[in-house]
Amino acid sequence: MWQGVIPAVTTKFNEDGSLDIGEMERCFALQMDAGCDGLIACGSLGEGPMLSHDERLEVLRVAKRASGGKPALLTVAEAATRDACALAAKAAKAGADGLMVVPSTIYHSNHKETVATLRAVAQAADLPVMIYSNRVAYRVDVTCDMLEELADDARFVAIKESSDDIRRSTDIINRLGGRYDLFTGVDNLAFEALSVGAVGWVAGLVVAFPKETVAIYRLMQEGRQREALDIYRWFRPLLDLDVSTYLVQNIKLAEAMAIGSNERVRAPRMPLEGETRARAEKVIRTAMEVRPQLPRFD
């Protein structure tokens, strides 16, 4: 159902902390102009947990307008299943094309609880769902056993695999074939995941470097792995910025340097400073100085 590069977009703020609708419209349009295949609003990178439900729905509406008919998904990541279901229902009414759903972000649910939560959210919205499995950040692993159990509900259409173990991608395909659209959710494992059968990439650094991200994906689809790998090797130091406690600040800094956006984040986050900032700036600046010329692709 879904495939390709789908950015997990950042949320933009004005100086007073309110949503900067105009800047989001500009930045989201850059993603679509580069050939991205949809947008995901208010995930971890989009600071979703720091936003009210109303704010998240507003970001979704901006993404929906920008996506040009391609899928615009809202991330549902709540501590309580009741709140997740309420947001899911609101997202459906607001025109979401689907949801990316994270199990409880506070309580680390067991197998039975995780499956029940995912089923409840899918039923509340009655929309296609991308299951987000990230045992590293959220400590809830949506395993192959769970995916097999959930496979009887056609609303579960995709899995964003972020276990940080590339073997899991092959495990999912071996167990379930093409039942789920398999997306990689770890930027610095994207080439590896696409090599073993992932059909999509929920990307982070794409928001600052959309053309390079799309090029890697499209070249891989055309069987031009050598050319894709050359770009990926250039990209890797940047992609490593996504795998960090400071991924939001890192990537917003990259946006500021690469596309002229801003670094505003919502507290308790603060923009990078000191040595942490200097290291990130060096990575970004060095990459921009040797930015590759992209080959033509279909």
Rank of each mutant, 00 (worst) to 15 (best):
I173Q: 14
A86V: 06
S104D: 09
G48E: 05
G95A: 06
K64D: 03
A96I: 04
T117C: 07
L205G: 02
F156Q: 07
V283R: 08
P271V: 01
A228G: 08
R139L: 09
D97A: 06
Y138V: 01
D152H: 12
A124S: 08
T114R: 14
R269P: 02
G46A: 01
R269C: 02
F28H: 14
L247K: 12
F156M: 10
S133A: 04
P7C: 06
A63D: 08
R236E: 15
L99S: 08
I6Q: 09
G98Y: 06
S244V: 05
L247R: 13
V102C: 07
R61Q: 10
K12E: 04
V290K: 14
L147F: 08
V9W: 03
A92H: 14
V62P: 10
A208S: 13
R266D: 00
A190M: 07
V207N: 15
N250K: 01
S104G: 15
E227Q: 15
S67K: 03
A158F: 00
R61H: 04
S162F: 01
S18H: 10
D33C: 01
E255M: 13
L147H: 13
V102L: 11
E281P: 05
S18K: 14
R218K: 13
E25P: 10
A79M: 09
D242N: 15
E15V: 06
A120F: 12
V121K: 07
M220T: 10
E263R: 13
A88R: 08
G38A: 13
C85L: 12
K12C: 07
C27T: 06
M50K: 12
G48V: 01
R167H: 11
G204Q: 04
V202G: 02
Y217T: 03
K282Q: 15
R26H: 04
L247T: 06
A278Q: 12
G69E: 11
E281A: 04
L30S: 07
Y180Q: 02
I172Q: 09
G274H: 15
V248A: 02
L30K: 14
I259A: 09
I231Q: 12
R233P: 00
A280C: 11
E281C: 12
V248H: 09
Q123D: 04
N262Y: 05
T11W: 15
G17I: 00
D97S: 11
I173P: 13
I21S: 03
K160W: 02
T245C: 03
P292F: 08
L229M: 11
L45S: 07
D16M: 06
D152M: 02
T75N: 13
D141M: 05
D298Y: 00
G43L: 00
R218H: 06
